[in-house]
Simulated assay, not measured.
Amino acid sequence: MGYYIAKVAITAVLVVLITEISKRSSFVGAVIASIPLTSVLAMLWLYIDTGDAGKVSELATSVFWLVLPSLALFIALPLLLAKGVNFYLGLVVSIGITAICYWLMVTVLHHYDLEL
């Protein structure tokens, strides 16, 4: 149980740290946030839990393919905000666009027999 609490605590601390740094410098916050810390932690926890490098490899490959459609959020949100759209509405619309992009990516990958 202590192990799971440690995993949650470390992951939460990183998110809070990035938020606090971003208040002072959006650039430094963005640099830290753009490092795939969550993915690295997930791969680390998965390997520690299973000892299976194959599972880690599968996760890393899936993350690679799904990073591409996730970029839609980082394109849509700033464009919507620049157009004067309310932050919360812009965030919801951007998440919706991103969800559609995820669906498209999974559909295209499935068409080429690449299963995530």
Results as ranks from 00 to 15, higher is better:
Phe64Arg: 10
Ala76Phe: 03
Val15Phe: 11
Leu81Ile: 08
Ile21Ala: 00
Gly90Phe: 00
Val67Asn: 10
Lys23Asp: 00
Ala82Thr: 12
Gly90Ser: 08
Ala53Ser: 11
Leu68Ala: 10
Ile48His: 00
Thr19Asn: 14
Gly29Tyr: 07
Ala30Met: 14
Thr107Leu: 11
Gly51Met: 13
Lys7Thr: 01
Val92Trp: 08
Val8Arg: 04
Ala53Thr: 08
Val16Lys: 02
Ile48Pro: 02
Ala42Phe: 03
Val15Pro: 09
Pro36Asp: 06
Ala30Asn: 15
Leu17Glu: 01
Leu59Pro: 01
Gly96Arg: 09
Met105Pro: 06
Met43Ile: 01
Glu115Trp: 15
Ala42Gln: 03
Leu17Arg: 05
Leu79Pro: 08
Val56Thr: 03
Met105Tyr: 11
Thr50Ala: 02
Leu79Ile: 10
Leu71Ser: 05
Phe87Gln: 07
Ala99Leu: 12
Val28Leu: 14
His110Met: 06
Ala60Pro: 01
Leu44Ser: 12
Leu114Trp: 13
His110Glu: 10
Lys23His: 04
Ser70Cys: 13
Val28Arg: 10
Phe64Tyr: 10
Tyr102His: 02
Leu41Thr: 12
Val63Tyr: 09
Val85Asn: 04
Val108Ala: 15
Lys83Val: 08
Val56Ser: 00
Ser34Tyr: 12
Lys55Ile: 08
Glu115Gly: 08
Lys83Gly: 08
Leu104Cys: 11
Ala72Leu: 15
Phe87Asn: 06
Leu79Ala: 14
Thr61Asn: 14
Trp65Phe: 08
Leu109Ser: 06
Cys101His: 14
Leu37Asp: 03
